[in-house]
Design a protein around this nucleic acid. Structure first.
Lengths: 195, 195
DNA sequence: CGAAAATTTGACATGACTCAACTGGAGTGG
DNA sequence: CCACTCCAGTTGAGTCATGTCAAATTTTCG
């Protein structure tokens, strides 16, 4: 019925890392996700709209960011290959988002809608466990970033960015990294040229 | 068998906010938690040790914090009444913690050990859902704090602290608030006396 | 009540920002 | 494929937010 392609194996392997699914469960899961391509600079979510889907990145890179009152962008998360991406608050409460999600490169994702996920939780409760673990890992990641913002200097946070996202630096603009670190592109340039 | 006390109702109400338990499930849950009192300045976790339990605060206030190489404390979380408290990374992986947990006031908690929680997930899968939602809320909370650290000034972050923890300010020392905001007590004092 | 810790206040130091000018590379249209 | 534009990145000068140190004062708690 569903021919298992290479990309299906990627997302199934991601899930298998935390929970073990039977064949019927895999089939059902694959039947509720859909593949989608986004061009560079294309949006998956604009602030003010409701985040209706959760995304798994197959290829490329997304960013979750906030634009403040002065028009400055602040990046909360990069999601390159094999990462999940969502505005969790908007998705969870199905209320208007304060964040944007767009593509920094041509990107391919699997999409899982809110309604499909709700049904998935009913039919395959193991997914409650899977997304519990995913949320826990996200909690831990953000907590470490809070900790770093409390105790580290901009240069140290830059090094942590490099560790958290290996190779990503070569793929995206420096101004994106600055918007993630919470410093100006000018200052990031100074940090880099000091070493 | 288990007489329902007032404190039991508190934690059950906290759970009922996200999932609905049957009587047998409530009884089982109550049989695996235990009540514990911690004096002010008492520790529930020291960094380097494994976080063996999850705590629900009945009364008082805990803090989760990190002590850096210069001996300066950085606070990741306050958990007053009706909050859950844990070093999630250490607990989840059962590996040595990098954070400390101690009491800012004389505090009473319910304790749920890692082993009991694992069994609880097996016997009452609804708890997977409950802790998924709890983790999601924690993820959202930390994400907002990251966002605030990226775009807000110390004074604005101070206002957000006041909103996030109503009334807590009167209960704890200013140096604790400064350690949460990522500024020095001296600078917090200046901010407060400027308004 | 007394000692220790927390807070306040002031002078000075520094990390990070703003603004502006310059350079170079990427995207676009003819 | 060239020429043009425009945006990203660099560099330097001056500024602002926040930190450091130290002394004075108040509060907490044993």
């Amino acid at each position: 019925m569903y021919k298992l392609s290479k990309v299906h194996n990627l997302i199934l392997a991601n899930i298998a890392y935390h929970v073990t699914l039977g064949q019927a469960e895999k089939d059902y899961f694959l039947s509720v996700i859909s593949r989608k391509a986004i061009k560079r600079r294309g949006f998956l979510l604009k602030s003010g709209h409701v985040c209706k889907s959760l995304f798994y990145v197959l290829k490329g890179c997304l960013r979750v960011y906030h634009t403040d009152k002065d028009g400055i962008e602040h990046i909360l998360l990069f999601t390159p290959e094999d990462w999940w991406c969502v505005d969790l608050y908007s998705f969870h409460t199905q209320s208007p988002a304060s964040f944007n999600i767009d593509a920094l490169e041509d990107t391919e994702v699997f999409e899982l809608t809110f309604e499909h996920l709700e049904k998935l939780y009913e039919k395959v409760p193991k997914f409650e466990r899977f997304f519990r673990i995913l949320s826990q890992n996200g909690f831990i990641m953000h907590q470490e970033r809070v900790n770093s913002s409390l105790m580290d200097t901009a240069g140290e946070r830059y090094e942590q960015f490099q560790k958290r996202y290996p190779k990503l630096e070569q793929r995206i603009a420096q101004k994106q990294i600055a918007a993630y670190l919470g410093i100006t592109p000018v200052f990031l340039s100074m940090i880099r040229n000091k070493k």
